[in-house]
């Protein structure tokens, strides 16, 4: 009995079981779902939401929320497309330039939230408008094309003709994030800052720089996401990643990251992403309506939150 209790109380195990149940259900429900081609594609569909959920999780754990990740990603897609497509620069030079600009964006967020101590939601709402605005101005509001064969590999390439390359990127990024956030000294510091800034201050933790690093990490994940999006759509647009922002908040919270900061972990958030993507792909395979999908996603999210309320209470 106590073993069962422990299992139910372990968020990641419960979510994992739930994902597995969904997987089995969809396999029986649609003859198109359990096919190698679809399963490989399913892993590729995880990637963009996955990377932005990593970014979002870090900022939420530190007690904030980075709402500018969608705008940073979109701005980076525009820059990559302009550097490579319009200006015809070398691919690696373009990536480096866009990377530096993304880091400046992250540092700006970090400066506002860490050093000036502006409420992170307000600060990143402001920078979000700023980044989107810059993207709109330099792209003149249209999709900038970027047809570069050598660049397609990031978002369209398959290793051995099968495993999508972006899936490998997500696995690497998630592993790095688990190491950094769950297992490093920096990680433990941001948990402490997130749960109790007071205690962190008494412990002598330099909040300014640790928060700065959170937003730089968030910008890094957004930038990696931008490389994949730009490759996948052969271009960049100033609002292309905007819808992913709120989805990443849902996935993180669904995965057990506390919205008030300081608890939850990256693995759970990733399982959250897997469940969201499973539902979307599986229901498409079943031919269910897109509107029904939103109801199902909403219901599952609520069910898990209610479940957590009851388990926590005891």
């Amino acid at each position: 009995m106590t073993r069962l209790n422990k299992m139910i109380n372990n968020n990641e195990i419960m979510l994992g079981i739930f994902a597995l149940l969904l997987f089995i259900s969809f396999s029986f429900a649609s003859s198109y779902f359990f096919r190698l081609g679809n399963l490989m594609q399913l892993t590729a569909q995880l990637v963009e939401l996955g990377l932005l959920t990593l970014a979002m999780s870090a900022s939420i754990i530190s007690g904030g929320m980075d709402l500018s990740i969608g705008a940073m990603t979109s701005l980076s897609t525009v820059l990559l497309a302009i550097f490579m497509g319009t200006m015809g620069l070398n691919m690696w030079v373009s990536i480096l330039l866009a990377f530096l600009i993304a880091m400046i964006c992250g540092a700006l967020n970090g400066f506002l939230c860490g050093f000036l101590k502006i409420n992170s939601m307000l600060a990143t709402l402001g920078t979000q408008a700023l980044f989107t605005g810059i993207g709109l101005v330099i792209s003149k509001g249209v999709t900038i094309q970027c047809f570069r064969e050598e660049f397609f590999f990031f978002g369209q390439g398959r290793i051995g003709g099968l495993l999508p390359f972006q899936t490998v990127i997500l696995i690497l990024a998630a592993t790095l994030s688990v190491l950094l956030i769950s297992n490093s000294i920096w990680g433990r510091r941001i948990y402490l800052i997130g749960s109790s800034p007071e205690a962190a201050r008494f412990a002598g933790i330099n909040q300014e720089w640790n928060i700065m690093l959170v937003y730089i990490y968030s910008a890094l994940m957004s930038f990696i996401c931008a490389i994949i999006v730009t490759s996948r759509i052969s271009g960049g647009r100033a609002d292309v990643a905007d819808p992913l922002v709120l989805q990443s908040v849902s996935a993180a919270v669904f995965g057990g990251i506390s919205i008030t900061g300081g608890s939850g972990n990256i693995l759970g958030a990733m399982i959250g992403v897997i469940i969201f993507t499973l539902v979307s792909n599986g229901m498409n395979m079943m031919g269910a309506s897109q509107f029904l999908q939103q109801i199902i996603i909403g219901s599952i999210l609520l069910a898990v939150l209610i479940f957590r309320y009851f388990t926590k209470k005891q």
Partner: peptide
């Protein structure tokens, strides 16, 4: 979900 699915297919 799985039941709804069977019907859909």
């Amino acid at each position: 979900l799985s039941l709804a699915a069977c019907g859909q297919d």
